[in-house]
Amino acid sequence: MDTTNSSYFVNSVAKGLSVLMAFDSQDRQMTITELEKKTNINKATVRRFALTLVDLGYLTITDNNKFELTPKVLDLAARYLESLNLPDIAHPILERISSVVKESTNLAVLDEAEIVYVVRVNAAERIIGTNLRVGSRLPYYATSLGKAISAWLPEDKRKEIWEQANIVAFTNNTITDFEEFEKELEEIRLNGYANGNNELEIGLRSIAVPIFNKKGEVIASINVSSNSIRTSEEKLKNEFLPLIIQGAEEINQLIKTFS
Rank of each mutant, 00 (worst) to 15 (best):
D2F: 10
T3H: 13
T4Q: 14
N5A: 09
N5E: 13
S7W: 15
Y8A: 11
Y8H: 14
Y8E: 14
V10A: 03
V10S: 07
S12C: 06
S12W: 05
S12P: 08
V13F: 00
L17F: 01
L17T: 04
V19F: 00
V19K: 00
V19H: 01
L20A: 03
M21P: 00
M21A: 08
A22E: 02
F23V: 01
D24G: 00
S25I: 04
Q26K: 08
Q26E: 09
D27N: 06
D27G: 01
D27E: 04
D27Y: 08
Q29V: 07
M30F: 04
M30H: 00
T31V: 01
I32S: 04
I32R: 12
E34Q: 13
E36R: 13
K38M: 03
T39S: 01
T39K: 00
T39C: 04
N40Y: 04
N40T: 11
I41V: 07
K43Y: 12
K43A: 05
K43M: 04
A44D: 12
A44E: 15
A44F: 11
A44W: 07
A44P: 04
T45S: 11
V46D: 09
R47I: 01
R47T: 05
R48T: 02
R48W: 04
F49Y: 15
A50T: 08
T52N: 08
T52Q: 12
L53C: 02
L53A: 07
L53M: 05
V54A: 02
D55K: 14
L56I: 15
L56W: 15
G57P: 09
G57L: 08
G57C: 10
G57F: 14
L59P: 04
T60Q: 15
D63M: 13
N64G: 03
N64R: 15
N65E: 14
K66G: 05
F67Q: 07
E68P: 02
E68I: 08
L69G: 06
T70H: 03
P71K: 13
L74M: 12
L76C: 09
L76H: 11
A78Y: 11
R79E: 11
R79C: 01
Y80E: 13
Y80P: 00
Y80F: 06
E82M: 09
E82A: 04
E82N: 07
E82V: 07
L84N: 05
L84H: 05
N85E: 09
N85S: 09
L86K: 06
A90K: 09
P92W: 05
P92I: 02
I93Q: 04
L94Y: 10
L94Q: 08
R96E: 12
I97Q: 05
S98V: 06
S98M: 10
S99Y: 03
S99A: 10
V101P: 06
V101R: 01
V101D: 00
K102E: 12
K102P: 07
K102V: 08
K102A: 06
E103I: 03
E103K: 07
E103H: 07
S104F: 06
T105L: 01
L107E: 03
L107D: 01
A108Y: 10
A108L: 03
V109C: 00
L110F: 05
D111E: 14
E112N: 12
Y117L: 12
Y117F: 13
V118E: 14
V118N: 09
V118Y: 08
R120E: 12
V121P: 09
N122G: 09
N122D: 11
A123W: 04
E125V: 13
E125L: 10
E125W: 10
